[in-house]
Design a protein around this nucleic acid. Structure first.
Length: 391
DNA sequence: AAAAGATTCAACCGCGGTACT
DNA sequence: CAGTACCGCGGTTGAATCTTT
């Protein structure tokens, strides 16, 4: 394919940018926006190549990036995601709001890689989520679970309990499970115990879409939440509404923590009566930057609700839901859960695990799936088809 | 205080993907 | 269908800075 060199002009400047150049670039982009990088330098009066301008803007000048040392939570997220995604820095960066791929890449190469390799024998070969919850689906595996981009970052609980990216849509299987649980909680009368709590506005409403208990809530033209899952919409009270009502109707922090834990303990109890099991481990921690507090409802671990589809001896796939709760500056509490699926028969032993986001049905439906890199995607068709049928 | 070595990180470079003609 | 243009990504470089001797 023919390709002209991007920066062939000898008169173009290279090297460190001056303050004047930065100002020119900022002024131009503020006026005209980004894009058209090839012609931008000329229009902006810069003796730079377009690629250089783009890089300078995205990695340094744009206003929505956070600079400075990465937090411990961010470090952990990078380590986890790097194990799953490899050196796909732009993908990793999507999970770290306000951080650039270049910054993450540099941080990994200069610091994390060395430190991490001291701790892990073979970080390049993470295990997939086990298809047998009685054996391998413990915290080490869970740490490989990727997240979607968060608008409110959660430390140790991340990456598995993030909000879904705005491009993602409903998660029907999660919804089914949660609605099932919700209906049982409703039937038990447990909800009555918290009905006296005052309603509180949900946090993080600045995002375009907010995932609440596995259901993506889009906003309508008026900015009001819009349920995208018809099954939920027909419920008298959806799981999202129920759990968020529980979680956000708590006026005081101490009371809120205790109450939300109680809610999820109940949820756990109800879940275990059905065809679900719980395991895993993660701990609560305070949060910085956006969310003040976040915790797992289960003190003794990140308690997945793992649902084996098929039989325990011959699982077709695992379906997992990971709940967490967090609050904003106003001490408004919200609960979130994310949904993941691992396909057992697509896994070829000994291969590296990768994460693929597969569209499992209508264009609006996507679920994170765990596959082995050396598995033939074609062989997964059957499993995926069965999963779609299940949904 | 100065030289040497190590580290950091902004920037460069080439390639792949994709839209357009 | 081929050529071209553009964008974005990831590997690499090298100047600046920091640390050690």
């Amino acid at each position: 394919m023919g390709r002209t060199p991007c920066c062939s002009h000898e008169q173009l400047r290279k090297g460190a940018w001056t303050v004047q150049e930065d100002q020119k670039l900022i002024a131009y982009i503020q006026k005209h926006g980004t894009g058209g990088w090839r012609t931008l330098p000329q229009k902006a009066g810069l003796q730079r190549c377009g690629k250089s301008c783009r890089l300078r803007w995205f990695n340094y000048l744009r206003p929505d990036i956070k600079r400075g040392k990465l937090s411990h939570e961010e470090e952990q997220t990078i380590i986890k995601l790097q194990a799953v995604l490899g050196n796909r820095w732009s993908s990793i960066a999507k999970h770290l709001p306000m951080r650039t791929d270049n910054e993450i890449k540099n941080y990994w190469n200069s610091y994390l890689k060395k430190n991490y390799e001291k701790q892990v024998v073979d970080p390049s070969s993470p295990k997939p989520i086990s298809t047998d919850s009685s054996t391998e689906s413990k915290s080490s595996d869970l740490s490989m679970v990727p997240s979607k981009k968060t608008d409110c970052y959660e430390p140790d609980a991340t990456p598995q309990q993030s909000h879904q990216q705005s491009s993602s849509k409903s998660m029907p299987s999660s919804t089914q499970l949660l609605n099932k649980v919700a209906s049982k909680i409703l039937a038990s009368g447990y909800l009555e115990a918290i009905k006296s709590c005052q309603p509180v506005v949900a946090v993080n409403s600045n995002s375009e879409n907010v995932v609440k208990t596995g259901i993506v809530l889009e906003k309508d033209n008026n900015g009001d939440p819009l349920l995208t899952n018809s099954a939920s919409a027909t419920h008298s009270i959806t799981s999202a509404q129920l759990l968020n009502k529980m979680a956000t109707s708590l006026p005081h922090k101490a009371h809120g923590l205790a109450a939300v834990k109680a809610v999820f303990s109940k949820l756990k109890e109800v879940s275990e009566k059905g065809d679900t099991v719980s395991d895993g481990s993660f701990i609560s921690s305070d949060q910085v930057g956006g969310c003040l507090n976040t915790f797992s409802p289960f003190e003794d671990g990140p308690q997945l609700i793992t649902k084996i589809i098929g039989t325990s001896s011959s699982p077709i796939f695992n379906q997992m839901t990971t709940p967490t709760c967090f609050s904003d500056n106003e001490d408004n509490w919200q609960c979130v859960s994310s949904n993941y699926v691992s396909f057992s028969n697509c896994a070829a032993s000994g291969g590296d695990c990768s994460v693929s986001e597969i569209n499992l049905g209508e264009s609006s439906s996507s679920t994170q799936c765990f596959l082995f890199e050396n598995a033939d995607l074609g062989t997964c068709d059957d499993e995926i088809s069965r999963y779609i049928q299940y949904l």
